[in-house]
Amino acid sequence: MGASFDIGYVFSFLPKLLDTLGVTLLIVAGSLLTGIVAGFLVALPRMYKIPVLRALSGVYLSFFRGTPILIQLFLFYYGLPELLKPLGFDLSRAPVMLFVILAYGLHTGAYAAEMIRASVEAVDRGQVEAAYAAGMTPYQALSRIVLPQALGIAVPVFSNLVIALLKDTSLAFTLGVMEMTGKAQTLGTLTQHFVETYIALALIYLVISFTLEKVLLAAERRLNRHEAREERVVRRFALGKRGSYRAALADIETGKGGGI
């Protein structure tokens, strides 16, 4: 099975894989945008308890969190053209990327919705009351007082969401999209140096995940700079490595426990 191990291949594969990094990042960015929009649309009826819409968003959440992303990819790819054909949309020639971004986007949306709802609800009720008591309108209270604080709370969850999405994009090749994992398979088959390709592939994912996590951690610190510094030190001391605890907490909050 395959040729004998040669570390040199790992280095020569890195630049070749990085050629397709753009495709991977395009899927991540496109899905993230779709996901955040979908997340708001789904979270709002749940937060404001709008009857029918709330039930619908409940079904959406349950389905997208209750089925594997791989199945969702196939469902969108094969199902969407069939469902939309009777409505007069012909998707038979639509680019695969459209289905990929839609599937990942709506999948991410289910987790984003919970992130948004949980973060807004985590802001103390007294903050809104104080804003109202000062004569602010509901919109002013939301935009100036609640959302800025919710943002700081949401960042660790968001960080987890983005990294989970990045890892999930490794499945897009199943629909024939030539992103990094797809490229790695081609390289492996071509050279028979599978282990080296996948080591190179794993290294790239690791570096991107790590960078994303650090950047978002810095953003979180900045957004939460108003919280007591002593508390942060105590927390870090008690919990050892803070980064992974954040991630664990993030899992708790969105329910994205495993992640592929």
Binding site: G126, Q127, A130, A134, G135, M136, G152, H226, E227
Partner: peptide, 25 residues
Amino acid sequence: MVFQQYNLFRHKTALENVMEALLVV
């Protein structure tokens, strides 16, 4: 209103807390 739990805006400094309503309201 002055609240029992103070309810100062957590993400704003003492000065910004006092200024907030003057600016916005």
